[in-house]
Nucleic acid binder design. Sequence first.
DNA 1: CTGATTTGACCGAA
DNA 2: TTCGGTCAAATCAG
Length: 335
Amino acid sequence: MMEHGDVRLLLNLLLQGERQTRQLMEASAASSPAVNEESRARLQQIRSSLENAIAMAKLISRPEGTHRLILSPVAASDSPPPSNSGSPRSESPERVVKEHERREMCKNKKDLPKWKRQVRVTTDSGGLAEGLEDGCSWRKYGRKEILGAVHPRPAVTFTVKGYYRCTHRNTAGCLATKQVQRSDDDPCVFDITYRGQHTCLQMLQEPPIPAPDQLYDTGRPRHEQQKQTMALSFSFPYDSTPITGPSTQNLILSSTTASENSGYMGSFPLPFTSPATSNFFPSQVVAPNASESELTETVSAAASTVNSLNINPSFTLNHVEFDPVLSSDPSNFFG
DNA sequence: CTGATTTGACCGAA
DNA sequence: TTCGGTCAAATCAG
């Protein structure tokens, strides 16, 4: 487990990064056309993630942390879980804990960074799922008919919304989710709303994760070594998040920042680490005249692809050595 | 067999 | 009370 002093160190690094990012944003605002909107949007995303990370670090640095929130509801009872009712949602210690986590997550959800992108479906039967891929592996966990929208047919006033979460939610504690819904304005367009960012760093080609027994075997001071294993240490229920770079096309940032006590772990979007950002959101290639069910299938398939990616759930903080990069030309990020 | 999807029920927010 | 979002058992697919 990360030691308190290490968290303070991390917090200082994060604060430094946030400060430098803010300065970059101010500089870019002053130089108007010199820095395009996309770069500004990315900067905003970086800053948002940093703020989230700071919030999480502050949370962890408090001795009373979030762990107590998890444990308190169960502590009272020694009796076996009631097996009455037969309902799958009947009370049991595990369920009480999960329910508590769920409520906490509901509270925190509005603090998660959120952005939208629109995906246009074009005619190309050959490339189906590719267009809707975003480089992440998603798992569908629900679907809902949403009122007030005109699709699938003009006569019907609802549309179907699909809910997806990161495949690595359980293994890496990644709370990133997205919702896919057909646009009201254009049946060929899908609105995709992302919430939270990936902690699993699944889109990045990272070096292999060191085996657990290698984690502290570098000869470096322990606090430095722990930087590299932070994501693993963060995998309790209130941690989370990071790393889905927002789309470079049709990006709609409605970014919110984590509140002081959100328990949300922000992280560092792609510009820090990957030169291939623009490849994550290719244009669309799905037949526009496909039936609703076909399109749903398409979206579903696209959303669940990329499972073959070489996933590295580690949140390697060696990407967070801000100083040399952030203090220099912004083009270093986005070039 | 394992992992992903479907789908009805549940829950909190408005 | 309604509605959006999530859960989890059942089912499907590779």
